[in-house]
């Protein structure tokens, strides 16, 4: 396919003699891999022009406007949604939208509530995740920068110290690739570690998604940037960090009884060391993170 063509170019250039001088070969750009990556990044930047990593808060009516002439079921559902939620914040559809939505939603929650108990809770979990990765054989240097950057953001949203940041600054940072992508990658490490650690639990779910082993799944669908998230990722992240997540589903499904309702699913972290994450039973912790799922994409929802 595409790869082949690129490779052919490469072969022509590969015929150069060994004695070639350094200056001549400084230019080692025209290569298959580079071409592919340039193409990828061109697509990404085209996408970036349309929407930043995180958009502005918009009223739910902005969502309704999107479907004005669309499916009547969706229009009805958005009306139902508007009864419970006031606003939506869109995220870029770059395959990292779930993690990015989670990042912003979580940090924003901490910034607004100053919930130090929750910060202590997640820090304990982060330390556990670090140990998990170490015990799985990850070299420290491959993940510690990502961990450090997340912990730094966590400290910054807590007010009262010199590194404290405002809501605007949080938004800026979440839009800054060098911070945002690092935090997304941190969540990917955490998710991958949790799935591997409890591979027996996750195996059947993974097999339900694709014909892959836990190992392959983590390597191809969790750790690489830009790979989309599914319920397996959400369950693992929620469990690993001890943070409940509510996902509201906006799709064309309707129930036969005639009434339109919007389904949601709560991912409630498994109680410590109990390898079952039951859903719907939100007695212990009510999710403070709500994401809107439309097939293939997650955005942030704000409850009334």
């Amino acid at each position: 396919m595409q790869n082949q063509n690129h490779n052919q170019n490469q072969n022509l250039e590969g015929q150069l003699p060994d004695e070639q001088t350094a200056s001549q070969f400084e230019d080692w750009a025209n290569f298959g891999d580079d071409d592919i990556m340039q193409q990828h990044s061109a697509i990404r930047s085209a996408e970036a022009d349309k929407i930043p990593f995180l958009g502005e808060k918009e009223p739910i009516s902005a969502l309704a406007a999107e479907y004005e002439s669309g499916s009547p079921i969706l229009i009805e559902k958005i009306k139902v949604l508007a009864e419970q939620y006031v606003a939506i914040r869109r995220t870029r559809g770059d395959g990292n939208c779930f993690f990015r939505s989670f990042m912003f939603s979580y940090l924003e929650h901490i910034l607004e509530t100053q919930d130090r108990a929750e910060v202590d809770q997640i820090k304990r979990k982060v330390e556990e995740c670090r140990k998990t990765l170490q015990s799985l054989g990850y070299a420290d240097f491959t993940f510690e920068d990502f961990f450090a950057l997340f912990l730094e953001q966590l400290d910054c949203v807590l007010q009262g110290n010199e590194s404290s940041i405002s809501h605007d600054e949080l938004l800026n940072r979440s839009r800054d690739q060098s911070i945002s992508d690092y935090v997304v990658m941190f969540f990917r490490f955490v998710t991958s570690g949790e799935i591997r650690k409890r591979s027996e639990f996750f195996e059947p779910f993974i097999l339900g998604l694709m014909n892959a082993t836990v190992e392959q799944f983590c390597k191809s669908s969790v750790e690489p940037m830009g790979e989309e998230s599914d319920h397996v990722h959400i369950t693992a992240l929620s469990d690993a960090l001890g943070v409940p997540i509510r996902i509201v589903y906006l799709d064309r499904s309707s129930c036969d009884t005639g009434g339109v309702s919007v389904n949601h699913h709560d991912f409630i972290p498994a109680a410590d060391d109990l390898p079952n994450s039951t859903s719907g039973d939100s007695v212990t912790k009510n999710p403070f993170i709500t994401l809107l799922y439309r097939p293939g994409h997650y955005d942030i929802l704000y409850a009334k």
């Binding site: 891999d33 592919i36 990556m37 990828h40 990850y138 491959t142 993940f143 990502f146 990658m185 490490f189 390597k219 191809s220 750790e223 690489p224 940037m225």
Partner: peptide
């Protein structure tokens, strides 16, 4: 390259 991951 599209599957390269930072843990490598």
């Amino acid at each position: 390259p599209e599957h390269w991951q930072p843990s490598w």
